[in-house]
Design a protein around this nucleic acid. Structure first.
Lengths: 272, 272
DNA sequence: TTGCTCCTCACGTCACGTGAGGTGGC
DNA sequence: TTGCTCCTCACGTCACGTGAGGTGGC
C-alpha cells in the first residue's frame, strides 16, 4: 500500500505551504498523486517529496515557475542536471551583481566620489562588425558578453583588423522602457573592412564624453553627471548613446580596473 | 534658472524607466519638481537624480518601495546612512542564505546524501526560559537569532542553570501557512527554575528524532525523511515540532559543523 | 451534533508593464 | 497639418495570500 498523505501532512513534510501546493496543482506543476473525485481532496505520495523540495529550493532563488517546470519535467536525470547547472551558473552571476550593487550602495554612503571629467569629441563614422537586437534591461550584461564573444571570434576567423576597443550602442528607448535596441560592435580599420560582408557603419557626430572607472554597477552615476551636463545646456539630441569598453570584461577580471567611455550625442560642442 | 528635465530626459539620465517614474510619482516616493497644471506634464530637476539613483539601487536589491521611502524621507544624512547600513547588513545575510541554497541545490545533483538515522525517544516535560511569537517564515532565522541571544542574556543575568541545548518549537500552522507560532527556548535544571518567574514548561511525549548535520538550507531533506517515516506508519500527531540546536549558530561559524536534532511528535513508539 | 480538515471561488498584493485612446506644442 | 512627446485610464502579470462560505467524515 503506497501511503498517501493529506495536503497538510505533505506541507509539513516538504515545507511547502498548503496554499502553494494548491497553486502548483492548479498550474500543473505538481499534481497530487490522487484526487478524491467526490470530495476533491488532494492526496500526495511520499515519493513526491523530492520534487516538492526541488521546487521549493528554486522558488527560494526566485526562479519563475515556468522555468522550474522545465527542470521538473525534463526527461532523464542527465538532462535535468544540465538544466539545473545552467540555472546555478546564472544564479551565481546574479549573486555577483547583487554583491556589486551592495558595494556600490556603500559607496553612496561614503565620501563623495570624484566627479568624472567631461570632454567633447567629434566621432567619425567608422565601419564595424556589429550585432543588433532588441534586448531586455536585465539581460543586457549576458547578451553583451555573448555577442562580443561571437564578434571577437568572427573577427579572428575573417582576419579583420580591429581599429578600437569593443563597444555598444544603446537606443533611447532602451533606457526609457528598459527594453530596446542594442548594438554590440567592434570597430574595423576602414581598408580592411571593405571586403567584409557583415560590416556596418557606425554613425559619427559630436558627443560629450566621460570616462567611467570601475564596476558597471556604478555606471549610473557617470550617466547622471553626463546627462545633467547635457540637459542643463540644452544640447541633447535623440540618438543612441555609445559605450566604448576601453578596459572591458575581456581585458581584466577586476571590477575596479574596468574603464568605460560613455559618449552622449549632442548638437554641437558648446565651447566652440 | 534651475533646468527642468522632461520625464524621458530624466529617465535616460537616471536609468529609471518612464513607467517607473510615473509610478513613483503616483505613490509619492519621487514627485517631480514641477507639474504643468494644464498639460500635467512632469518636470524633474537635475538635483533629483541622486534620489532616483538611490531608489534604483535599492530596487535592484528587491527592497519594497515602503522601506525605500523610509530611507529617502529620513531627516538628516546620518539617519539615512544608519537605515541604509541596516538594510545592507540584512542584504548580506540574505546573500549568505542564497549562497547556502545554491550550494544545497548542487548537493541535490550529486550522489544521494546518506539518509539520516531515525530513532525514538520520549521527551520528558522540562522547565525552560521561553519566548513565543507569531513569526513569518522568511524572518525566522533572524527572529531566532535575536531571541535566543536575549534568552542567553536573561539566563546569565538571572543565574539560571541550563539543562540542555538551545531549541525551538514550531507549530503545525507555521509550516502549513508559512506564518505561525514559534517558541525559542533554553531548557533549565528543574531545581534552579522554581524561583524564576518567566520560566515555562516544555511539554514532553514520544517523538521520532533525526540528527541533521550541516546547513539549515538542507534541513528540509531531514524533515522529508522524518515526515515520510511518520506518515507511512500513521503515527503522526498534531503537535509542535521541536528542534534542538545541539551545535548551533552560537557554537560554530561553519555551516558544516551545525548539528540539529529534529523531534517529530508521534502517538507512540511503533517498536514497543 | 460538534469540530476539524479540506474544498472552491473571488479578490488582494506588489511594482510596475502593456496597450488604448487622447492632447498640447512645434 | 503631421509627428512627437506626454498624458490618463484600465487591465495584465506573477506567485501566491486572504478571507468568505461551504462540505464530508469521524
Amino acid at each position: 500500500v503506497a501511503s498517501l498523505l493529506t495536503i497538510s501532512e505533505f506541507s509539513r513534510l516538504t515545507h511547502v505551504s498548503v496554499k502553494a501546493l494548491r497553486h502548483y496543482h492548479d498550474v500543473g506543476l505538481l499534481p497530487p498523486a490522487a484526487v478524491d473525485p467526490s470530495t476533491r481532496y488532494r492526496f500526495y505520495a511520499a515519493a513526491q517529496a523530492p520534487t516538492a523540495l526541488l521546487i521549493r529550493r528554486f522558488r527560494d532563488l526566485d526562479m519563475p515557475l515556468d522555468q522550474i517546470r522545465a527542470v521538473v519535467e525534463s526527461a532523464d536525470r542527465d538532462a535535468r542536471d544540465r538544466i539545473v547547472l545552467a540555472h546555478l551558473q546564472s544564479m551565481e552571476r546574479r549573486l555577483e551583481q547583487v554583491q556589486a550593487t551592495v558595494a556600490s550602495l556603500r559607496g553612496l554612503l561614503g565620501p563623495e566620489a570624484p566627479r568624472p571629467a567631461i570632454a567633447f569629441r567629434t566621432l567619425i563614422s567608422t565601419p564595424a562588425l556589429t550585432v543588433t537586437a532588441r534586448v531586455e534591461w536585465d539581460e543586457t550584461e549576458a547578451w553583451l558578453r555573448d555577442n562580443l564573444t561571437a564578434l571577437r571570434n568572427g573577427l579572428e576567423y575573417s582576419g579583420g583588423v580591429r581599429a578600437g576597443a569593443d563597444g555598444a550602442l544603446y537606443s533611447t528607448e532602451f533606457f526609457e522602457a528598459h527594453v530596446g535596441e542594442v548594438t554590440a560592435f567592434i570597430p574595423l580599420a576602414a581598408a580592411a573592412a571593405t571586403d567584409m560582408g557583415d560590416a556596418a557603419e557606425l554613425a559619427g557626430g559630436p558627443v560629450a564624453v566621460a570616462r567611467h572607472r570601475g564596476s558597471f554597477a556604478d555606471l549610473d552615476r557617470t550617466y547622471a553627471e553626463l546627462g545633467t551636463f547635457v540637459a542643463e545646456r540644452g544640447i541633447g539630441v535623440d540618438a543612441p548613446i555609445r559605450e566604448n569598453y576601453a578596459v572591458g570584461i575581456f581585458d581584466t577580471d577586476e571590477d575596479e580596473a574596468l574603464v568605460t567611455e560613455v559618449c552622449w550625442p549632442i548638437l554641437r560642442d558648446p565651447e566652440s
